[in-house]
Design a protein around this nucleic acid. Sequence first.
RNA 1: GGCCCCAUCGUCUAGCCUGGUCUAGGACAACAGAUUUUCGAUCUGUGAACUGGGGUUCAAAUCCCCAUGGGGUCACCA
Length: 448
Amino acid sequence: MISHVKVRFAPSPTGYLHIGGARTALFNWLFARHNKGVFLLRIEDTDQQRSTEEATQAILDSMKWLGLDWDEGPYFQSQRLPVYRQYAEKLVAEGKAFYDTDAEGRKAIRFKMLDGVTEINDLIHGTITFDTSLIEDFVILKADGFPTYNFACVVDDAEMGITHIIRGDDHISNTPKQIGLYKAFGFKMPEFAHIPMILGEDGSRLSKRHGATSVTEYRDKGYLPHALVNFLALLGWSPGNDQEIISIPEMIEKFTLKRANKTSAQFNNIKLDWMNGQYIKNTPVEQLIPQVQSFFEKSGVDMSKITPGWLSDFVKLYHERFKTFQDLLNQTRFFFTDTIEYDLAAVNKFLKKEGVGELLKEAYSVISRIDTFDKKTLEDSLRALTEKLGVGFSRLAQPMRVAITGKSVSAGVFETMELLGKEKNLKRLDCAIKNLCETSAVMRSTAL
RNA sequence: GGCCCCAUCGUCUAGCCUGGUCUAGGACAACAGAUUUUCGAUCUGUGAACUGGGGUUCAAAUCCCCAUGGGGUCACCA
């Protein structure tokens, strides 16, 4: 454990919190918690054009949803303008910075970059060397009175006592400028740790065209926050063994920068889905129920007639079979609507077969006579039927599944039928029979 | 283009610092088989990588150099 650790996450509120930012925040948080240090949040809103309050809110919401609680802040740089001005003027007074007017007539303060060699002792990369004569005198205070990123960042990190700067390695090239500032002020130098970026699934920089890239999108698609955190933690860090599912306390206990990677990682939705499925399985049904309820409601499903008992059976039946709440909804829409979508391939493969219509008619009459409509009775009577007719049970089960769910893939057919209820089962069977027996038309989306 | 960073299965990674135990381990995905009323569920299994070239060394995935490839950055954006 390193003593007196203080780290920060310092996003700029120009958009939602994306996956890469979330990972940076997570590493800082984990580092702070592991070392019993302080995690601070600072909003770098020095771009008057692009900063928005909605973005700030979205970032805060995302952090909370992920469970990344901060101990200090959020501080807003826009509220510290006099501080930056004062520091900038100090440099001017000492001859380390100067006023400069550009071609457009804007007057700003520039920092005099000293020529020489600057070394960064990066905790992840080791020594990185820069020739500072290649770096121009950069603006530290803009014409609008706002500081630039490099300046505000250094002033704040120093004033706020940040000991370790953990950030994306796209900031490596900013570091010599910031070190120049630290030296000019005589500030105590922090440690730097530049973690690799997260790339899109095709290996290029993460952007909107990669689909979901923001934390809120994953939340809205029905992912569990702990699963996302677990997945993100493993992107660029490893506990050192073969463990894939790691609890937050365990992550905190094992997190060290020494085990952080240098290589950028490609995001992989498929693995995230698998991981989320693992977390779903490990979550007790009782906890899942309210989450399913609210996700379905938000998605426009009419849950008003759903009883607690039914919902409980429903979640139990699908517990091992869904990866995200959105996935669950996609799999089970046929329960909640009278207009089901038939999968054409499934219809052709199982319904449009010789003798299926007759078989379904027999099943229909058996089912219509069942009074106690539960899976046990259904199984007993339907199996008895196929035995009587001398056909394998799957000859009946498959067409029935398609007729009832519209798909060839579903949970157990009896459990599904029980949950769906007698009336709807009969309606859907009837519809299938009619389509098969009375017309040769292809079933598509059929209103029941 | 200048400067900087990086380089192990398709993907995430272990191993690298402290060369030998690596005929390179795990996970996701893929594929095959099993099971089952179906499956995107479950179980079992298979294929799959040290970017290339030089060194150093008895010995290199591990250390050094070069090449190549990928990424980042060069704003009064952050």
